[in-house]
């Protein structure tokens, strides 16, 4: 299982870096988005993939074994929320850039 997620992370990173190298702002944004997803998947994988139960006590006070580590999920959730804010802000900024310069090319945003 790990090998497939690792390959997927590689693909996500590769695609995102390809996009980040572009001058087109929309592609840059897509690159940032995919980069965030790749990182989240990496945290998930590197903390260990288990098909365990949620680490919550059942009625009798026992935890069913094996247990999945909840912390990486909490980390990823936080990272997703932060990523949402970042993407929201970047979208607003990029739209403003397009209104100002009438284009989505980084070169056209240079100072006169």
């Amino acid at each position: 299982m790990e090998i497939w997620t690792v390959l997927l992370i590689g693909v996500l990173f590769g695609v995102s870096f390809y996009f980040l190298l572009s001058r087109n702002l929309v592609r840059v944004l897509l690159g940032l988005l995919l980069f965030g997803q790749g990182v989240n998947l990496l945290i998930f994988t590197s903390a260990g993939l288990t098909t365990g139960h949620a680490p919550i006590l059942d009625g009798s006070g026992n935890t069913p074994q094996p247990v999945a580590d909840p912390l990486p999920q909490a980390l990823i959730l936080t990272a997703i929320v932060i990523g949402l804010g970042m993407i929201g802000f970047s979208l607003a900024l990029f739209r403003k850039a397009r209104e100002q310069a009438g284009a989505v090319d980084l070169d056209q945003l240079k100072e006169d």
């Binding site: 980040l20 702002l25 840059v28 940032l32 980069f35 965030g36 990182v39 970042m86 802000f89 970047s90 900024l93 990029f94 403003k96 850039a97 100002q100 310069a101 980084l106 945003l109 240079k110 100072e111 006169d112």
Partner: peptide, 22 residues
């Protein structure tokens, strides 16, 4: 504030810092 130069500078700032956070 939103002048053209400000947005251009902001864009570099956002992109590089985003990558650094990643």
């Amino acid at each position: 504030g939103g002048s053209k130069a400000q947005i251009g500078g902001g864009m570099k700032y956002v992109t590089l810092n985003f990558i650094s956070s990643g």
